[in-house]
Write a protein that binds this DNA or RNA. Structure first.
Lengths: 249, 249
DNA sequence: AGGCCTATTGATTTCGAAAATCCGGCATGT
DNA sequence: ACATGCCGGATTTTCGAAATCAATAGGCCT
């Protein structure tokens, strides 16, 4: 049975990958989250437990646990006794997520600039370099399309932004930034793979300016650049959404 | 058996109170949350499933669901395969929650002041009045002690602060404010019932000043007063915590 | 005697089935 | 013809047991 395969895979691969333990609920959480963010499931689509059970080879309990967690992260919604479904998307929700993210990350960045030490600077520089390298690598090769490339780019991008705020000394701000990153990623990915809007925008330069201002401890300037960076992205996404007429429940 | 009682209570009272449905998981969530916030369970205490099953007359599944939800709200913590326990308390965590709350609520208040209409003003005035009334009622009677009085006060207090930010037009900010309210309530309640620090502080006056500044659309002043209000409370809590030497894991 | 390995214990996690619930369609009556 | 009430199918929610895993105490070897 498929169940046994998955169970073995868990005891094997996961336990080997991480030192300790990995519950099936966490596996379910990660796979579901990735599938939702990458639009494998359409927004608004009902997530029937029976279907998920077959798709992931897991049983009800870990799936319910994962769905509940995803609900608090606004990736799935649930009506009282009517099961779960993928959270719908809308321009309003995207802007709410964006502006909240700006509020959180700008404050976190200011504190990070205030408290950051040498290690912080080193990590910022290093993650920026890794991101820049990935961008160049993708530019040199074909325009885009490689799913692996895009996911690698997303990973570097996330690392860089996380490094910027890492020294803010607030667990909550970091956790909120992570969560809002995932939420906005859901809007960012489709607009990114749909068409590469390299026109009229130099993203590596924006990142470099944010980094420079941060390392020079110019907090106001860094926060302003970061906010502008996010707003510009959201404006492009909004244009892309209204163009393709998305948000069909 | 106790199980039957609870089941009946759910089908009866809850279904009557709310129009529609109420899952057992939600019952478990609310009861667990209240018990944790009111320090029925000590911080750090392990929450063994078997114990909770007996205490609430519920089975594993709804309890797990509730515990998972509470984990994302930082009221319980869980180590990989070692079950759940009540989240520990510390002065640092309290200040992190407080400052995050100030960041969220001040921004929400500014937007609420900007967008608020007549209905908003009416709700603010009305909830303030209800809060004020409850305070006077408690002052007239015995000093404190009535658990019902304290919970009624908390309810009015929550309603007032929620009314202030209700017109901010951001689901996320409101949800975050609610969550941070619950987190800080955990610290506020013990310090409140321990000793009434009516000295050197006029809480109704602080509330009135916040309301006046908000209704007069003086956003900067209102936000400043709100932040000062929360910081003063947290300072008193910190004093109370270090006095009683809390935070025993 | 000290350290390591092993068996037992206690707990969590997971599973599959049973119970309760909800939605859609159909018959019935006005 | 329209509204109302009822029944069957499908889905969620809940349950209790089985499997799994970490911790501990005891025995054995060095």
């Amino acid at each position: 049975m498929r169940t046994e395969d998955v169970t073995k895979a868990k005891s094997g691969a996961a336990a080997a990958a991480q030192g300790g333990a990995e519950t099936l609920a966490e596996v379910a959480y990660r796979r579901l989250r990735d599938d939702i963010v990458q639009n494998v499931f359409s927004p608004g689509q009902p997530l029937r437990l029976e279907l998920l059970k077959q798709r992931y080879g897991l049983s009800f309990s870990p799936l319910r646990e994962a769905l509940n967690r995803l609900q608090t992260e606004r990736l799935v919604v649930t009506a009282a006794l009517r099961g779960f479904s993928v959270a719908p998307v809308s321009v309003e929700e995207m802007w709410d997520a964006t502006e909240t993210r700006i509020l959180i990350e700008c404050e976190a960045l200011r504190r990070s600039i205030q408290h950051g030490d040498d290690d912080w600077e080193a990590t910022v520089v290093s993650t920026f370099h890794a991101l820049d390298l990935q961008v160049r690598r993708m530019e040199q090769r074909a325009g885009d399309g490689g799913d692996d490339d895009i996911s690698a780019l997303e990973s570097r991008h996330k690392d860089f932004h996380r490094a910027l705020i890492a020294s803010c000394r607030s667990r909550r701000l970091i956790a909120l930034a992570d969560q809002l990153y995932t939420e906005t990623q859901r809007y960012r990915l489709p607009a990114l793979s749909g068409k590469n809007p390299a026109t009229s925008r130099n993203i590596p330069r924006e990142h470099r300016e944010i980094m420079d201002a941060s390392l020079a401890r110019r907090a106001d300037e860094a926060a302003g650049l970061l906010a502008a960076h996010y707003r510009k992205t959201s404006e492009l996404i909004e244009a892309s959404m209204s163009r393709s007429g998305a948000a069909v429940a």
